[in-house]
Each structure stands twice: as C-alpha cells, then as structure tokens.
Design a binder for these strands. Sequence first.
DNA 1: TCGAAAGGAACGACCGTTCGGTTGATTCGC
DNA 2: GCGAATCAACCGAACGGTCGTTCCTTTCGA
Lengths: 209, 209
Amino acid sequence: MTAAESSLGSGPVSAGTGPLSAGTAPAGATGSHGPAPRMRRTRAGDGTRRRVYDAESLLAVAVTEFNARGYDATSMEDLSRAAGITKSSFYHHVSGKEELLRAALRRALDGLFGILEEPAAREGAPLQRLQHIVYRQVEVLTSELPYVTLLLRVRGNTETERWALARRREFDASISTLVADALAAGQIRSDVEPALAARLLSGTVNSLI
Amino acid sequence: MTAAESSLGSGPVSAGTGPLSAGTAPAGATGSHGPAPRMRRTRAGDGTRRRVYDAESLLAVAVTEFNARGYDATSMEDLSRAAGITKSSFYHHVSGKEELLRAALRRALDGLFGILEEPAAREGAPLQRLQHIVYRQVEVLTSELPYVTLLLRVRGNTETERWALARRREFDASISTLVADALAAGQIRSDVEPALAARLLSGTVNSLI
DNA sequence: TCGAAAGGAACGACCGTTCGGTTGATTCGC
DNA sequence: GCGAATCAACCGAACGGTCGTTCCTTTCGA
C-alpha cells in the first residue's frame, strides 16, 4: 500500500475541532524542531532541507489548483507540477483525483458540522444558538476558505459530489429547523417563512467568499 | 463550409436589442407559417414535422448543459445527445465546443453592454442613470438567465474565457465610474468608496441568480 | 541493506474533431 | 411533368491527443 491510503482514504478525520492552520506554506526551509516533520535533502545537495510531501500539504496544493482552474479542468499533471514532482511520484502520495476531492470536501463539511456539535450551538435559546452558529460559520469560512469555496462550487457530476451536496443540504436543513424553533419561541418576527429566512441567511454568509 | 460558420462564427450578433425569446421550445409541431422556419420530415415518416436544428436552438441546448454540468465536464456527446442527434451531426451545425461557449458568452455580454447604450443610461443625472442600469440589469439577468449564469462562472482557462472576463471587468468599470460620478454630483453619501459600492452593487444584483 | 520517494514509459479510456458516405427533399433542364 | 443533379442533414467510424492511472526501475537517506 502507498502512503496515500493511510491518511486520505479512510478513518475519522480530525478536522472537526482540531488545529486548522493548513495554510499553503510554500515548503520553505523550516526549523527541524516540532513533532518530527519528516525532512529530506534536496537532490541538488545544496544543504537546504524541505518538508517531505505528506497528504496534508498535497491536499492543500490540490485544493488551490481546483479552485483556480476548476476540478474538471485541472489535470493530475497540473497538480503534480504545482507540488514540484512528477505525476507518477504524485501518485505515490495520493490515491486518485476524486479521492483528493472527497478529502477536501470532507474537510469543509467536517468544519461546518463541527459547529453544530459545539455546546453553544446545542444548548440555550434558539436565537442565541443561531447567532453562535452564524458567528462560528464565518470563522470556519475564513479559516478553511479554499475548502469551503470548493464545496460551494460542487455540481453533482460524480458520486462524491452528490454526497457532498447531500451533506450540504443536511447542514442547511439543520439551520432551517433552528430558524423554525426561533420563530416558535417568538424570538424572531413571524411574518418570514423559515425556509426562506434560512436560505437568505446562508446565502448571505456564503456570499462572503 | 457548414451552416455553423454562418451564424456563430462571425458577423455582428443580433442579441443586443433584438427579440430574445430563445426558450428551449421542445420542438413540438408548429404551424408552417412565419418567416420560413425550415422543416423536415421525421425519419419515421409518420407525417410529424419538427423544426430543423439551427444554431440558435442548439446554442440554447448547449448552454443548458454547460450550466448543469459545467463547461469542462460537458462532452460534445452530451450536447449532441441533448439535441437529439449524433455527435457528427451536431458538428454539422456548430463549429466547435469553444465556439459555442464564445457565442453564449457574447450573448450575455451584448445584453449587458446593450444597457449602457440606452438613452436613459447615457443621459441625465448620474444617480438616475445608475438606477436605470440596475433596473435593466435585473431585466436582462432574468430574460437571459442561462447565458448570464454561464458568464458569471467563467474561470479564465482558455482565451475565450479570458476575453469574457476582460469584458466583464470592463462592464463593472463603467458602473464604478458612474458611482464615482454620482458621488461627485453629491447624489450619494460621500463616506462610501466608489469601487466598493460598485462591487457591492453588482454583487447584490448577481446574487439574484 | 532496506524501504520510501521519485521518475520514465506506457496503457486503456475518453474527448474534440474530421472524414467518407447515405438519405431524402428540392431544383433544374428539357 | 419527370428524371438527373444538387445540397443540407445526418450518421458510423476513426484519428490524434490528453487524461487518470499503473508498472517497473532508479535514487537516496537511514
């Protein structure tokens, strides 16, 4: 098995509440401290060291390319070139193109659904919970911008994309329910339709992209 | 030369202010009157007649498919199947995939730029001209929805897409100028940046999609 | 010495496009 | 009025190219 299947293919993803830096740190020369970020010498042998390609950084590269050119218009050669290695070497780390897309979409979705599981989103009056969710949603949108951007552009061509669309609808439905609860509790005006209000709400938030 | 090059390839496009019905009329049995809409017998020989495929209706089909699946994910086979003919027959009417995209984008852009040439958009106080443009922009957005939708999703992968992006920026720049004029004329509050206001304006209008 | 990392080359599938040929309605010469 | 010629419409088959993916070998650090 290749290294790809161990961190992208399966298993619980830690993107829920964990540290979500994931910036596209351009593989510059970093210190050798920290929790063993594996290094290797550059072939040029000039003494510079750079991070070995792991699934996480390659995913960041892929998402950047997907967002720039669109998923379908981005070839695996584009991705590997952006990563600085050949196409076949790229396949040593990732298991496939659609698997990259799935991992990216899962990261965005886990970030969003993680909000719903926070205490402040589950306890208290509906309106206050709603406010917390909107606030946190903006935060996730900011910290995970490329991944959420990709999620919002999904069309439903493949099975992976349809899965992402379904989960996205699921998230919107939760917010719809919460809006209805807030209305039932008399916390918001009663002359707005819950579904419409929820749609406008997420539309407004997502327009921040 | 094929029929495709005569109406898609070159020449002034009449989409500016002409009749813009272009609905995907499902090729039902229509009367034989009108300005010679060419007919042909169905191969089944059952006596039913249907409209022969012209560049206009095939463009509408293509845009529908492009919007549903995305330009890159839509194959020429998809388009021809949606049109009800084979791929090679489809090529008898259109000159290529990118040419279809260009024609669709030009239609959307001509609709938008046509607004700027209307008298009410060129004469009078800046704010009133601005209001007229916004009003008409919503109208064009509605009547040409699929084409404008396609335009708003352009990424810039090919030369055609970059041309469309450039013209779109050109349109936005015209509106920016008008906002600045309205500000200089003291018709709008002076504590908003013109560029930002213009961006928000088109963002709001385009969000109607 | 061993295994992870990287690369060259190729494979099968699909894509956009072209080619050659068939059909059937219209037009032209007589 | 009628056969021959014409022409748009249509189709099956194939071509060159690109894509995602795999195989096999080489390189290199530990």
